[in-house]
Amino acid sequence: MRFGILAAVLLALTGLQANAQELKTEDEKTIYALGLSIGRSVKVFDLTPAEIEIVKRGMTDSLTGAKPVVDLEKYGPNLQPLAKGRQERAGQKFLETAAKEKGATKLPSGIIYKELKAGTGASPKATDTVKVNYRGTLITGTEFDSSYKRGEPAEFPLNGVIPCWTEGVQKMKVGGKSQLVCPAKVAYGDQGSPPSIPPNATLVFEIELLGIGGQGADVPRADPQPKK
């Protein structure tokens, strides 16, 4: 989506968001939904209230034809590096906080492992096929995947998914439930997994290990290795 269109939509939504009851027509509701979608896409910038005001100023100047105070062609290319840096900073802060939680263990790869419920069965090897229920969220709490919502556990080769899972699930026992906080480098890396997982995203998974062995397909939405 072009940033000019993004600016126009966000500015138009400013008045609509003030009072949700004013969304009377189907077009207004659809445009509001577009705003929600765009809002999620720019969360990677982790904007402060003061920075949001700067964004509003830029949108206003663009829509009113006022002379820009910066050159878009010069500073526009900085948007992607800025988003990457902000995402990495927020992820690192989240990992540091998670590592301090009671019962949490930081693994050599940087994964934060926390047992939520002890299992009593065997632990899988990387070459095993495992059956799990799981829920995946961004550090903002936004859920991007859930076997619970699909109403069916996932079954897959443990060495055929992201490295965070391959390493972390091997520490579990059947019947147990654990939380994995996965740094981007052992999740989906610089590329992310569009549209739900942005680049350089730290991810949080709650995983129940239901069984080991059997035939199964790859877990939905997971890549054999993080994209480079």
Rank of each mutant, 00 (worst) to 15 (best):
A201R: 03
L180T: 03
A12C: 15
E208P: 10
G110W: 02
L138G: 00
G176L: 11
R2T: 08
A7R: 10
Q225A: 11
D61F: 12
M172V: 08
Y32S: 08
F94Y: 13
K74S: 05
L180P: 04
A8T: 13
K131E: 13
D71V: 08
G168I: 04
F156D: 03
V219M: 08
A217R: 06
G136S: 03
Q179I: 10
P199E: 06
S41H: 10
L11G: 05
L203H: 01
K227R: 00
P220E: 06
P108R: 01
K185Q: 15
F205P: 03
G189L: 02
V174C: 03
A222L: 13
A99Y: 09
G151A: 00
K228Q: 08
Q17M: 14
V132D: 14
A187H: 03
Y148P: 12
P224N: 07
G121P: 05
A118N: 04
G176I: 10
Q17G: 09
K149Q: 14
Q21T: 12
T64A: 13
E167A: 03
G91F: 02
G58Y: 09
G216K: 02
T142M: 10
K228W: 07
F45E: 11
D71W: 07
I162T: 07
M59P: 09
Q170E: 13
Y75Q: 08
T120V: 08
F156K: 01
D190H: 09
D218N: 01
E143S: 06
L82E: 14
L10P: 10
K185L: 12
I31T: 10
R57K: 08
N78Q: 15
V42P: 13
T14F: 14
